[in-house]
């Protein structure tokens, strides 16, 4: 009986196995490639077992400006997370608690800004930044990314605030807190998972952004997502695969760490808080 059941289970276990391999293999292959010599890169059949070398790693970290671009990315992402959390928590609290007119219209207006095509916004932003000297600056991207993260932050946090019972503020206010005091001392600490969810998600979004960074930055404020494309072919040489794979592996690291540590929060961000796990 048991073995019959086992045989029935086999085909779909195989299907799941294949899907898992398909999801993971390309990532593993990228990382493996970064440890290969150029010769091994161009060998067929590709060597599965090889002596890892650090040539490309040393080159990218020591002899290119990738480290500086990496720092740019981290500064831009942290700055925009801080700014969007600060603005977003106020708006989210307002939408969760206060009796304001056309509340849902406001909420969906915020959401709708997320759907706008970057291609339609980038030209005026470019001209504006050009005029006020914000092209190729970290603060330029911080402000822009904060605006694009804001709708997510508001929607995620609103869900968390609504889950907290209103009696919390009421009893805090009976104890003499003002509304602001109740929010800062009672609600914010309890909504920490929400802040974390909104924060890590915006952080990953900011690291991933490419389009605006490509148009609005040059060598000074360039983040990693754009920096990695410097290893792509130019008119005079082909793709520097060794260096490109090192750079790509480095870019993946923050996202993967965040995914491993804060999986639940990140997933809640991905689904805009629609799924509560």
């Amino acid at each position: 009986m048991n073995s019959f059941k086992d045989r029935l289970r086999k085909p779909w276990i195989a299907v799941i196995g294949v899907m898992v391999i398909l999801s993971i293999f390309p990532i593993v292959w990228l990382v493996l490639t970064s440890f290969k010599t150029l010769n091994e890169l161009f060998t067929l059949p590709p060597p599965i077992i090889f002596k890892p070398v650090l040539t490309h790693w040393i080159h990218v970290i020591k002899y290119t400006e990738f480290g500086r671009y990496y720092a740019n990315s981290l500064i831009i992402a942290s700055g925009s997370v801080a700014l969007s959390l600060f603005l977003g928590m106020m708006a989210a609290y307002s939408l969760a608690r206060f009796d304001i007119r056309r509340k849902e219209d406001f909420a969906f207006w915020f959401l709708s800004t997320r759907m706008m095509p970057p291609a339609a916004v980038v030209i005026p932003i470019y001209l504006l930044y050009f005029r006020i000297g914000m092209l190729d600056t970290l603060k330029g991207l911080i402000i822009l990314y904060a605006a694009f993260n804001l709708p997510f932050v508001i929607w995620i946090l609103r869900g968390f605030f609504e889950d907290l019972p209103q009696e919390l503020e009421e009893s805090a206010m009976i104890d003499g807190c003002s509304i602001v005091g109740a929010f800062v001392r009672v609600i914010l600490p309890l909504a920490r998972p929400g802040l974390l969810a909104a924060g890590v998600f915006s952080f990953v979004l900011s690291i991933n952004e490419f389009f605006f960074a490509l148009v609005l930055t040059g060598s000074k404020a360039r983040p990693v997502s754009v920096a990695v494309t410097l290893f792509l072919p130019t008119g005079v040489r082909g793709t520097e695969y060794g260096n490109a794979t090192v750079a790509a592996t480095l870019i993946m690291i923050p996202g993967i760490i965040i995914y491993i540590l804060f999986q639940r929060f990140l997933i809640r961000g991905m689904t805009m808080g629609a799924i509560k796990t």
């Binding site: 990532i27 990228l30 990953v204 997502s225 494309t229 790509a248 993946m252 965040i258 995914y259």
Partner: peptide, 10 residues
């Protein structure tokens, strides 16, 4: 969870 640019490189 992978950066889209990295997906392109991969």
């Amino acid at each position: 969870m992978i950066t889209p640019v990295v997906v392109g490189i991969i």
